[in-house]
Computed example of a mutant assay.
Amino acid sequence: MTAPTRPRPDWATIPNLVTLVRFVLLAPVCMLLVDGPDTLAVVLLLVWASTDWIDGLLARALDQTSRTGAIIDPIADRLGLAGIVLSLAVADLLPWAALAIILVVDVAMVVLATRAALGGRISVSWLGKVRTFALMGSVFLLVAAAAWAPSLVPAAQVLFWIGVALHTVSGVDYILRARRAPAVAPEAAEPPSPR
């Protein structure tokens, strides 16, 4: 007679391991960016950013979505973006105002929409996905331009400001949807879409 198999803990998934790698990679990425973007910084930033796509892909492919993943994945995204923009501001590639706007929007979303998100009453919108793509894509282009084609830095900075504008609009939309979401008792709430 075989012993009954114990259920896997919610946190013990391959996608969550990939998300943890994103946390670990953030410090070396930021240090390289502060020193001045070079080829290694571009490659490591690309690896860091790809983990966001990989963990979601694995969560769906392996059917390993989890409540833990739903919580730590957006934290990794927000913390990572703030750290990278801070590093680029220190390196004089972005103005400090950009970091301030991103942080104000993120703090407002945390304060005004976290309860609705964790209660499963709102999910990521298409606008939020476009915002993430625009911001991270423009950051990558900016770092690549600084490393390989400095004359293209101003164009990449314009793209980044478009991403900041989308971040602001998406944040306001997220907060408004959270305010309009119907109240649900905690025991009846479904977990948010994990990835």
Rank of each mutant, 00 (worst) to 15 (best):
A100M: 04
A100S: 09
A100E: 01
I101C: 08
I101W: 08
I101G: 09
I102M: 12
I102W: 07
I102L: 15
L103K: 07
L103A: 08
V104T: 14
V104P: 11
V104H: 05
V104N: 11
V104F: 10
V105C: 13
V105D: 08
D106R: 15
D106F: 11
D106S: 15
V107L: 15
V107K: 09
V107S: 12
V107Y: 10
V107P: 10
V107F: 14
A108P: 12
A108F: 08
A108Y: 06
M109S: 14
M109G: 15
M109K: 13
V110S: 12
V110G: 13
V110H: 10
V111Y: 09
V111G: 12
V111T: 13
V111C: 11
L112R: 14
L112F: 15
L112C: 15
L112M: 15
L112I: 13
A113L: 06
A113R: 03
A113C: 07
A113Y: 00
T114L: 15
T114W: 14
T114E: 14
R115C: 05
R115L: 08
R115D: 09
R115E: 08
A116L: 12
A116V: 12
A117D: 10
A117Y: 15
A117L: 14
A117R: 15
L118G: 09
L118D: 03
L118E: 07
G119A: 12
G120S: 03
G120N: 06
G120Q: 03
G120A: 00
R121P: 10
R121G: 12
R121A: 13
I122L: 04
I122A: 04
I122P: 06
I122W: 01
S123T: 14
S123K: 12
S123W: 01
S123Q: 11
S123M: 04
S123I: 08
V124A: 12
V124L: 07
V124W: 05
S125C: 06
S125R: 06
S125E: 03
S125V: 07
W126M: 13
W126I: 14
W126K: 11
W126Q: 11
L127M: 12
L127C: 06
L127E: 03
L127W: 05
G128P: 11
G128D: 15
K129F: 02
K129N: 02
V130G: 01
V130K: 00
V130Q: 01
V130S: 04
R131T: 10
R131D: 05
R131Q: 07
T132A: 11
T132G: 08
F133D: 01
F133G: 10
A134E: 00
L135P: 00
L135F: 00
L135D: 04
L135Y: 00
L135R: 04
L135T: 10
M136W: 02
M136R: 02
G137F: 03
G137R: 00
G137E: 03
S138E: 06
S138W: 02
S138V: 06
S138D: 01
V139K: 05
V139H: 04
V139N: 00
V139M: 07
V139I: 13
V139P: 04
V139C: 02
V139Q: 05
V139G: 02
F140G: 10
F140W: 05
L141Q: 04
L141V: 01
L141M: 01
